[in-house]
Design a protein around this nucleic acid. Structure first.
Length: 524
RNA sequence: GGCCCUAUCGUCUAGUCUGGUCAGGACACCGGCCUUUCACGCCGACGACGCGGGUUCAAAUCCCGCUGGGGUCACCA
């Protein structure tokens, strides 16, 4: 038996990728099969080698090692779709020859018009098959003339396609509702659907274990297997991980980057144990077990189909179980290794050098560089909301403006390349400038959000060393706090009142000083 | 909105196929014990079969309907 995961290298390595990888790997190991890693980088615009490397690194950190893949090779390579383009083109040509696919010359503009018309008429959006009946000679002539075109799947117009899902049974789709999916894009590269089916067949994948979000496109895949005359694999759609509000897990509402969990001090074996418990339970309901035990006892019929909420509290509990199960020696070694991984301590040393008169001061100074979220005390929260500016020309930060600034900065950080102090500074300055706040005020709010304190090592360098994953999560936490959830709204109102009072006091102080008066120092 | 999936404590789940155990465990929360503190540990409390029909001596479990939740409807995967 052969299974695979096929992540797209378009961003930070995702917790959902690890979840699906875990079940694939366990399935392969349980049955003595192979677990393949294939990189789906057919989206030229969004894919990157950095992201691909990050996926390798994070999956390895989890302990999910693949048997075949771009970096380890294997008998079915290449394992990067961008290196397999010719395969898709020739296979797609077969489909066209068999009239199971056809060239389409419709422009994006025409498609938009059709889509709008269908929407206005209250119909489902589907390609209107304008090019489907085109004469083969005419099509060939236009292709030869160099006209840009795509290749579409000629979905049957009647009947139904049955998707046999191993967990759900037969899921039936009426063919007339299924779109004539684009198979080959105008840039000559395949879409997911084509590449996926061709590769799964060529790589002799027997079981497709993927997330449920794919189930609605599976009839297209089934149709493709049929058109090629191939035996389809067994389809197993796993439930989708959810946010606390039950929506599909998202970075907006959860830390989804695997790098974050590594940086937050989660043990990979605990992380895997936790993931194993989502949508799944061991036959004897054990909730503390190794990957080896999981593999040994794996039975996919035990998967429960309701979408499980990703609960950080439970993750931390399980992590604690692992911490306490270790010998003190092992724990010490593991903690030490974690502290020095990636040689981060060298970068940290550079940043705290001026602040550690003795080595004993080291610990206190480095705290912000390790771990996930930070907690803010009352004083720190004042600065999150916004500190009072002395310059009248600039905008005064308040909860709303401060949050907008954080959100803007998060977006900038997420797409920042490279992740380097110079670029970080530029992003930071741009975000604060856009907010209208005085530069120092904005920087202070960010400093507090990032470090948890009003005093920290140099900001840009610190953010660089902290890493994108953790920096973004901390900023997000600040933004979330400012948005106010439940009682937090009241807390912000209180803080804003206090701030107003503080400003008043300062103004009076300034007036008094201007008047030459002396003011007795107030007690703190 | 159409289509598809789904439905047990706040959360993760066992039990559902093969109707009959006070619906069990874990996390979180709350209370207590232990303890110089904290943590761990231990004990306890709270807490669920979405609703309505039907089948049956008996329904969380089987059937139908409703409702809720989610996903999906791209030259992204």
């Amino acid at each position: 038996m052969r299974v695979r995961i096929a992540p797209s290298p378009t961003g930070a390595p995702h917790v959902g990728t690890a979840y699906i990888a875990l079940f694939n790997l366990a399935f392969a190991r349980h049955h003595g099969g192979q677990f393949v890693l294939r990189i789906e980088d057919t989206d030229q615009r969004r894919s990157s080698r950095e992201s691909e490397q990050a996926i390798f690194d994070s999956l390895r950190w989890c302990g999910l090692q693949w048997d075949e893949g771009p970096d380890v090779g294997g008998p079915f390579g290449p394992y990067r779709q961008s290196e397999r383009s010719a395969l898709y083109v020739t296979h797609c040509a077969q489909l066209v020859a068999r009239k199971r696919a056809y060239p389409c010359f419709c422009s994006a503009a025409r498609l938009d018009v059709v889509r709008e018309a269908q929407k206005a008429a209250g119909e489902d959006w589907r390609y209107d098959r304008h090019c489907r009946g085109m004469d083969a000679d005419e099509a060939q002539r236009r292709i030869d003339a160099g006209e840009t075109h795509v290749i579409r799947l000629a979905m049957p117009t009647d009947g139904a396609t049955t998707v046999p899902d191993a967990l759900r049974g037969a899921v039936i789709y009426e063919n007339h509702r299924v779109d004539d999916q684009i198979l080959l894009k105008s840039d000559g590269l395949p879409t997911y659907h084509l590449a996926n089916v061709v590769d799964d067949h060529l790589m002799e994948i027997t079981h497709v274990i993927r997330a449920e979000e794919w189930i609605n496109s599976t009839p297209k895949h089934v149709e493709l297997y049929d058109a090629f005359g191939w035996e389809p694999p067994v389809f197993i759609h796993m439930p989708l991980l959810r946010n606390a509000d039950k929506s599909k897990i998202s970075k907006r509402k959860n830390p989804v980057s695997l790098e974050y969990y590594q940086r937050a001090g989660i043990l990979p074996e605990a992380f895997l144990n936790f993931l194993s418990l989502l949508g799944y339970s061991m036959p004897d309901e054990r909730d503390f077990f190794s990957l080896a035990e999981f593999i040994a006892d794996l039975d996919l019929t035990r998967v429960s189909l309701g979408g499980p909420v990703f609960d950080l509290a439970k993750l931390e509990h399980i992590n604690g179980l692992y911490v306490r199960a270790m010998s003190p020696e092992l724990l010490g070694d593991r903690a030490q290794a974690w502290l020095t991984e990636e040689s981060r301590h060298h970068a940290v040393a550079e940043l705290v050098q001026d602040r550690v008169p003795t080595l004993a001061a080291w610990n206190a100074q480095i705290a912000m560089f390790y771990g996930g979220k930070v907690t803010w005390g009352d004083e720190a929260r004042h600065f999150l909301v916004g500190c009072s500016s002395r310059k009248k020309k600039s905008v005064r930060l308040d909860a709303k403006r401060s949050r907008a600034m954080f959100d803007d900065l998060i977006a900038r950080f997420e797409s920042l390349a490279p992740w380097h102090r110079t670029e970080i500074e530029a992003a930071l300055r741009a975000a604060v400038e856009l907010s209208g706040a005085q530069i120092g005020d904005g920087f202070m709010a960010v400093r507090v959000a990032i470090s948890g304190s009003t005093a920290s090592p140099p900001l840009f360098e610190s953010i660089e060393t902290l890493g994108r994953a953790v920096a973004v999560v901390r900023l997000r936490a600040a933004s979330d706090w400012l948005r106010g959830k439940g009682h937090l709204n009241d807390e912000i109102v209180t803080i804003e009142k206090q701030l107003a009072a503080l400003r008043l006091t300062q103004e009076r102080l300034a007036e008094a000083q201007a008047a030459g008066g002396r003011i007795a120092p107030t007690e703190q």
